[in-house]
Design a protein around this nucleic acid. Structure first.
Lengths: 200, 200
DNA sequence: ACCTGAACACCGTTCAAGT
DNA sequence: ACCTGAACACCGTTCAAGT
């Protein structure tokens, strides 16, 4: 009712934009429509976001923050194979739950004006994976070799199956199954021979 | 010089749109700008494309046609391992050469108004891969099991490494190396045990 | 059949002015 | 510091009219 907004317009814009993109995709998002929904004038967003791309950048950062949090929550004390399975599952689950947001995340990251924070957040998962594989190697559970190469293979598998899942290319296979299949396949390839023998 | 266009405006719109998207991304593409570049009035495109999304759909179809052709050109008489390597290389090469087009291809395919032809073209590569793996199984070169599951794994690997390559997540590793690494890894996993022993 | 050009409803962005 | 509202240059889409 107060003629002026109460100071958290930035957060409200982001939250509303997340919902719109999640539901209708990027096509459904306009700054003017967003302002209309929230009940501010159409120029109000300019105080908080230089331009449309700047809002998308912030939205992408939100996405990576939530994805990274979901991934880090799987880092328990379980075996490497189980942690990998949990992390992979979490990644694909995020992709399936928020396919348009994930698209936006990688689109924004590719954009020439991408913020340093966004680029940084987009590399976190890969870095954590390299660290995890290094630890697995030191524990004798993963085969030796450049951990970045092994991480690359695992990441390619997980991201690839996520894309297949959201792209409707799984051909009827439920995504948790496809994800487990792909991740176990990747793990079998990078596990040490001794560990491989004990695997199911 | 003639006041009217000479009948291949549709093809010209598509060709020009491909160039613009390839260079500047989707943000740089507008129907009015396209018409301006070609030298027709801004409403002319409506005769050939219902709306903007319809042009993007046709553009995506072009992309899958070219990608599928590049993939089918690798289907020589070589061994399955070599054909897989060549096809994977071709896929990643296309992704690296035309990252924005590839994005557009999958975006358009996700769109509610996606044409049946586009959906069909986007499934071709996967179907060919399943057929190839089935043949490899019959030749005793691939391990038994649901060929769709094995194809899924290979496709996830290839598409995943393509995404990593265009997403600048390869961490300095040249993409042909990363692609070869990932594909060989996938092949080792699906190859028959006897074939695996002979592999490098 | 194919293209033109005006018309309409929408954008993103900027900026003086208000509180 | 934060928001308003007019202004501007751009869109996509439609449609009568021209050839």
């Amino acid at each position: 009712m107060s003629p002026y907004h109460h100071g958290n317009l930035r957060a409200e814009l982001l939250e509303r934009a997340w919902e719109v993109v999640d539901r209708d995709g990027l096509d459904g998002l306009s700054l003017r429509g967003l302002s209309r929904d929230i009940g501010v004038s159409h120029g109000a967003s300019a105080r908080h976001f230089r331009d449309r791309q700047s809002l998308l950048d912030a939205l992408a950062r939100m996405g990576f923050e939530r994805l990274n949090r979901a991934l880090s929550e799987t880092a328990g004390t379980a075996s490497f194979a189980e942690r990998l399975r949990a992390a992979g599952h979490a990644y694909v689950a995020f992709a399936v739950a928020h396919p348009r947001i994930l698209d936006l995340m990688y689109d924004a990251k590719h954009h020439p004006s991408a913020s340093a924070e966004l680029v940084e957040l987009s590399h976190t998962a890969m870095r954590d994976l390299v660290a995890m594989i290094t630890a697995a190697q030191e524990a004798g559970e993963a085969r030796p070799g450049d951990p970045r190469q092994l991480a690359l293979i695992v990441f390619a598998n997980v991201h690839g199956v996520a894309t297949l899942a959201t792209g409707d290319l799984l051909d009827g296979v439920p995504w948790p199954e496809a994800a487990a299949l792909t991740i176990d396949f990747a793990w079998q390839g990078i596990a040490a021979v001794s560990a491989r023998a004990t695997g199911g």
